[in-house]
């Protein structure tokens, strides 16, 4: 076991990890941050997306030890301390961008990465960027709407069907 230290959502965090401990397991089981979901555990579904040093990664396909010293952001750090949702989370709620909610942490974290790179993405760009995030409820349409709204764009431009 090795002691692994990183900054998680702006706060220092430290715990023991084996060589094989995945970042997703480290966050969930050692730090108790179970908002990061493990859907497929094969890097297909994107429910486990977190940011490491400012970029989106699939935390089920990165070793915890590789995040030593890194700045990690998870879904738990997205809302304000008093629980006020951030603009992306609020848009997901307003536009019904979640059904069962299992994929939502990854969807929100991928969206945050997208809007950092591209503050006003087109519908096509949104769909391409979310290629690695799978919604098992197939609720993509409202997710795209929510992201259009979160980026301050006209949601009515998206077809109803």
């Amino acid at each position: 076991m090795t002691k692994v230290s990183m900054t998680v959502n702006g706060k220092p965090a430290q715990a023991e990890a084996e060589g094989r401990t995945l970042l997703s397991s480290f966050l969930r089981e050692e730090l108790g941050l179970t908002g990061t979901h493990v859907g497929c555990d094969t890097s297909q579904c994107g429910a486990c997306v977190v940011h490491v040093n400012g970029v989106a990664v699939k935390s089920c396909t990165m070793l915890a030890i590789e995040a030593e010293g890194a700045d990690v952001a998870t879904i738990e750090g997205q809302a304000a301390a008093d629980g006020t949702l951030n603009i992306i989370q609020q848009a997901f709620q307003d536009h019904h961008g979640l059904q069962c909610g299992f994929c939502t942490p990854g969807m929100v974290m991928s969206t945050a990465a997208l809007l950092q790179e591209n503050p006003k993405p087109s519908e096509q760009e949104i769909r391409e960027y979310l290629e690695g995030n799978i919604c098992r409820c197939t609720g993509y349409h409202n997710i795209v709407k929510a992201i259009m709204a979160a980026s301050g764009q006209d949601v009515s431009a998206i077809a109803a069907e």
């Binding site: 994107g46 396909t61 991928s110």
Partner: peptide, 9 residues
């Protein structure tokens, strides 16, 4: 290649 998160790694 892959998707954005895969491309970052």
């Amino acid at each position: 290649i892959g998707d954005p998160a895969v491309r970052n790694r």
